[in-house]
Design a protein around this nucleic acid. Structure first.
Lengths: 342, 342
DNA sequence: CTGTTAGCGCCTTCAC
DNA sequence: GTGAAGGCGCTAACAG
């Protein structure tokens, strides 16, 4: 099949196709877009011509006419974080299935840069924007005078009239604790990360609520510091010194849990026989490779990204997106650190 | 300041601005784009009108005229992988500075989906494409009949006439080994990951070359299996049983190194005094939180992403991109697992 | 300096 | 069933 290239250096246009097929521009358009006011034979001729020229319709021109581009902006505050990526994946996946392409913009935690990217996205006439934050603490709203729908993911907007989706950390803390209780633990402590994070506070609320429901109290206070293995190791050592009879530890992150496991091992405690340990985030590289493997709470972040995308889809199709913060359910992943392997 | 909205529901256009400013379309265009054939007073009137209407120029229309969109496609085979993200970040950063926006497309390791995304990107008239792979093994070329420049990052194209950038794994293996040699180690072993990966083979070549240069040989064979902590633990146990006098271990990944550290600890070996351990990838969450902290090789992936972006920039500006695979230098990051902390 | 005119590539009435 | 004309929003020649 001879490829023809009428004007090298420039993409072939619909009029090239029309000319080659010996029809008018309008007819070619109809033939290619499957309009039904075209004779079958004509259509065939046009399609063949298009293939011969390897014609591909210019989306820019289409978008200009249609008034919508089939693109959305993913405006993230941070690409380093472990939490943003799965959300991105979920969103990209959901959009990809709907013929929508995503612009990725990383503001790197800088408000100026965010503003800059926002403007660029609007100039490119995206049909919607998902703002992905790195923490679950509320973030400033982009404001009300944005001409396209906006959904906030992970970090909800501080403005309750915006549409936000975020994981339910309170429920996560509760589920983790209930799981330990269900394995018969009664002396449960909570080692968490940076107390200035809403995530740390929310999870602690859930932990305390579950204990209260069982008529129990936390062993000691919640131990806050930061989300690292180092802290997990140090905190576990302090905890065991003060409360040698603790039999369950809810950790604020998988990293902390890894540190806790290390210290318990050093102290000669068996996990889960002597002490059960549960992490948070279900970061598989950490959770699956520890000894024993780590039970953890998974925030379903990819699903969260998909949900955000769905909201945008609906909003584009005219439905006003639900205002307020929607808390998405989290999921318990059971491994050897809470239930002995058979 | 009264916001005016001439035709609600539709974005304000340049002609709205022109009308409000009482000038022609062309003049408004010139005024806004800083052309210098406009009287200062007129320009001011136009700018004011634009602000009042919060006008933002439609990039689609501009792109249609200019013949280039100021967008590039980032076509990745995988967003899960640890290696793709830093490359994305580097590329996004480099492009962002140049007013270029990126379309993110995740093919999820599926050739069909890749083809699909490629077509979508071309229909959107991206000015260039970066293909980011998940391994350093060569991957199939997208082919020669793509009308925009393509650069392959991390996974080089199998076609040597394409332009590829990838980290220099041979050099990485060499640098790691030379570092151990420089600390006086002479009985060095190499525990690596999946031997079907080019990365594993390349690094082993570098390790062997460095030893040969020092008149030494590897202790035992290279131990291959997979890139996990589990394997690191198992391999170290086997190694120490057969060669108790080993005094340095080059690991194929930080995960493996973490496992090795665990086993050495269990066996009562001091790191780095008895055995020095070096990882690979400089994955900070693993490297910084281990005991001791892990010396590692950093592949400068963010820089790699930037380099790929620069190549695309040059290609867009007319320069033919360098054909062939460019190996980018890697970097040694020294921590406590090879040099005792003071 | 300013305005008029012609497109960029495509789609959509409307006559024929 | 097909083609001619108008326009999406903007810019780049040209005239005036």
């Amino acid at each position: 099949m001879a490829r023809v290239d009428p004007h090298p250096g420039r993409a072939t246009t619909l009029s090239d196709v029309a000319r080659l097929a010996g029809v008018s521009l309008a007819t070619a358009s109809k033939a290619i877009n499957g309009r039904d006011q075209v004779a079958p034979a004509t259509r065939r001729r046009v399609i063949e011509a298009a293939e011969q020229l390897s014609f591909s319709p210019n989306q820019l021109a289409r978008s200009l006419i249609a008034g919508r581009t089939g693109t959305v902006g993913l405006l993230t505050s941070d690409l380093e974080g472990r939490f943003v990526i799965p959300i991105l994946m979920g969103a990209e996946d959901a959009f990809g299935a709907g013929q929508v392409n995503v612009f990725l913009c990383d503001a790197r935690g800088d408000a100026i840069r965010e503003q800059h990217h926002l403007k660029a996205l609007l100039n490119r006439r995206v049909d919607g924007i998902i703002v992905v934050g790195r923490q679950t603490d509320p973030r400033p709203s982009l404001g009300k005078d944005i001409p396209v729908p906006v959904v906030y993911a992970y970090a909800p907007s501080a403005d309750p009239t915006d549409s936000s989706v975020t994981p339910d950390n309170v429920s996560g803390g509760r589920i983790a604790t209930e799981h330990l209780l269900s394995t018969g633990r009664r002396r449960i402590a909570h080692i968490s990360g940076d107390p200035t994070y809403a995530a740390a506070q929310d999870r602690a609320v859930g932990v305390r609520a579950a204990l209260a429901d069982a008529g129990l109290e936390l062993v000691g206070d919640v131990m806050y510091s930061n989300w690292t293995e180092h802290w997990g190791r140090a905190a576990a050592a302090m905890l065991l010194a003060q409360h040698p009879d603790v039999d369950g530890i809810v950790c604020g992150s998988d990293q902390i849990a890894r540190g806790v496991l290390d210290t318990l091992r050093d102290l000669g405690k068996e996990v889960p026989e002597d002490v059960a340990v549960i992490g948070y985030d279900n970061w598989e590289v950490l959770a699956i490779n520890s000894r024993p493997e780590l039970t953890s709470i998974d925030a379903n972040l990819q699903q969260l990204g998909r949900t955000a995308a769905m909201r945008i889809f609906e909003a584009i199709d005219g439905t006003e997106p639900d205002a307020g913060v929607r808390q998405l359910p989290v999921r318990l992943v059971i491994r050897g650190s809470t239930i002995p392997r058979r």
